[in-house]
Amino acid sequence: MKLLECPMNGVRPLSEFLFGGEYREMPDPDGSDDYEWAGYVHYRDNAPGVKKEWWYHGPSGTWFIAERNTLTDEVLKTYLFGKDPSGKDQTGSKPNKNQTTGTEQSI
């Protein structure tokens, strides 16, 4: 069984995880037309390559992002949403108008 590293719990067999699909930035619902929105909901570039994906560690209830090559099934790195150690991660970096601080990050 494949191994995956949960940023909170370390390396675990894949059976402890659930695949949450590709991470995709939501377009502004008010600023996109119907076609753009339908595209966000349904269409994607699913050619193989390195993708950002949601994964969920079941026993601890931890969502995180994995950067994985979908061709080789090789995981390049994993991190909590918005906490890419390289700082290059764009997930969650968009200012959120209702964002508050002091949030609980790992639940």
Binding site: G39, H42, Y43, R44, D45, N46, A47, P48, T70
Partner: peptide, 16 residues
């Protein structure tokens, strides 16, 4: 399919 569709810049809902 996604690889071939990429050659014509077509996005689809297909996941492998």
């Amino acid at each position: 399919t996604p690889r071939v569709c990429k050659m014509v810049n077509l996005q689809t809902p297909i996941v492998i």
